[in-house]
Every structure is written in structure tokens, then in C-alpha cells.
Computed example of a mutant assay.
Amino acid sequence: MRECSHAGRFGGLRAVNAGAIGATYRKPMTRIRFHGELNDLVPRRARNRPCEFRSAENATLKHAIEAFGVPHTEVGTVLVHGAPAPLDRRVEPGDTIDVHPAPAVEPADGPPESAEAPLEPAGARAQPAERPAFLADAHLGGLARRLRLLGFDTLLADDAPDEMLAERVDGDGRVLLSRDRELLKHRKVLRGRYVRAQRTDEQAKEVIRHFGLAPLARPFSRCLECNAPLRSATRQEVLERLPPDVAATHDAFTFCTGCGRVYWPGSHWRRLQAVVRALISEAPR
């Protein structure tokens, strides 16, 4: 079995200095191993193998794990000498630590709502007991639109400082989606996901699988632009907002309660139906 010895000093970790003298450096090394998809986030030398290090005084498991590049939002069970331990536990010399990834959420019972009937008003639908709401960072605008397309309350963050974004998700109880690990490490971020995929649809599929979203989808119930709920509207209500050819050939519309946009089942809607089918088909079988 290959092992690594973590060199250098960063975060809460301190490597052995061969020239140092004193009791501190005679203490046993701490050993850590990351499991599953967490190996995508740690330095290459620490992947799929135990890694030895010395931690700074009073460092917690959270500090040690995040010093290897893994935000606490990605962590599930942590074992110390084989027993579960909280992230605020202090790291002790000689500890053997196993870090497992946060498990994917089991999908709720029942099939996802069909993409074939998108114009039913959202208020007429039975809502599950808990449907997650999200905050996507400023670089995940495409992902935010895909989640809105599926009916999930998804805000898109601006370029505010990390502290402000962390306070926002803490106050709103939202799940933070980001490709910024330092943001996800913030102590006020309780739930989040470091999005691995690069392409928009792959990002959406990753989030759907991880949070078990497919059965909770309510396609075409939120505005793609502003995230506000949509409601059904008559032709007369929205007539002044319609192109003449649309007004003459359509009689089913939805109206954004936030920005006032009007949607109808045209060719763009049919393309979005195909996107919805592709995304929710990623539900675990």
C-alpha cells in the first residue's frame, strides 16, 4: 500500500521538518484517507491512499480536511479510529482518519411530473413536504436556468464577497451550488455542492442525481429569467404583450408573477420539453 507524507505548511497542516528538534516533532503522525468522489478534490499524492501529516495546534477535523482541498459541504461520515466523529473534533497526534463523501439524497417516491403538461398553474399542484431551494454562484448561470426550468427555486448570486453570500444561504436555508471551494468552506455554509461538471446540462444532471430531484421536478412552473412563480393566464389578460400571430393562434399562456414575461407552447417550448425529458431521465433507477 502506497502512502503519502503531506509536505509544506498550509491550512491547519504542518509537515515534518527534518532539522527540527523538540517533543512536537516526536509525536506520532496523523493519518488521513479520503474515499469515493472526494479523491477528485484532493492533491494527487493523497488520492486513494493514506496520507500522513502533522496538524497545527487546536486544528479540528474540519480544518484538516479542508486543508486538503475538500470543503465540508462535500463530507459525509468521518471516522476516527473507526468511530464516527464530528467535524469540530480536535485532531490528535496518531489519529487515523477516514473521510467519506456526502451520500446522494434518495429520490422521493413517485415519478417526476410530466414535461407534456407545462401550463398548469403551479398553485394547483400538490407540493412535496420539502423541495430544496438553491443559490448558484455567479459563474453557474446556465445551471440556474436549468433548475428553474424544472421548477426549483434557484437564485443566481452576484459577485458579492464570500461573506455576504455565505450569510445569504445561512439566512435563507438555501443549498449553495458553486465551483469555488473557498466559498463552500465558509463556516456559515451548511449545505452545498461543489459542482464537478463543466457543461451546463451535465452540471444539471449531476445536481439532479446528487439531491434526488427528478421526482420533485415541476417543469415550466418558474420563470427562467427571474425565478418567480408562473401562473396560467387568459389571452385577454396578456393580449397587449403578445405578437399578433401568437395572439391569433394560441389560447394557453403562463404569466410570470415577477417580471411579467409571457410564455406559450411554441417551438422554443417544444425544444425545452426535450431538455426536460433528458434531464429528468437521469433519475436513479
Rank of each mutant, 00 (worst) to 15 (best):
V70E: 04
H35Y: 15
Q203S: 07
F255D: 15
E282P: 00
K205W: 01
H35D: 05
R218Y: 04
G8C: 10
H72I: 05
E225Q: 08
F68V: 15
P118Q: 10
E57W: 13
L143S: 01
E282D: 12
P244A: 13
G69Y: 14
A136G: 07
P243T: 05
T257E: 15
A126E: 14
P244I: 01
A133T: 15
E237Q: 14
P121S: 05
D158K: 11
G173R: 01
T254W: 01
H6T: 06
S281I: 08
R196L: 10
P111F: 06
L41W: 13
A138E: 15
D162S: 08
A85T: 02
C51N: 06
G151S: 03
L165Y: 00
D95Y: 09
L216N: 06
R191E: 14
G12M: 05
L140Q: 10
N227Y: 01
E57F: 13
P43L: 12
G141C: 02
K185G: 01
H139T: 12
E240I: 04
H139L: 09
E116A: 14
R47D: 04
E113M: 13
P50D: 04
E206L: 04
R270C: 01
H35R: 13
C259V: 06
G19K: 05
R218T: 12
A20S: 09
A102R: 15
A136T: 11
L61N: 07
V175K: 00
A214F: 03
G82N: 07
R31V: 09
A104D: 15
A7V: 12
G260E: 09
G110K: 08
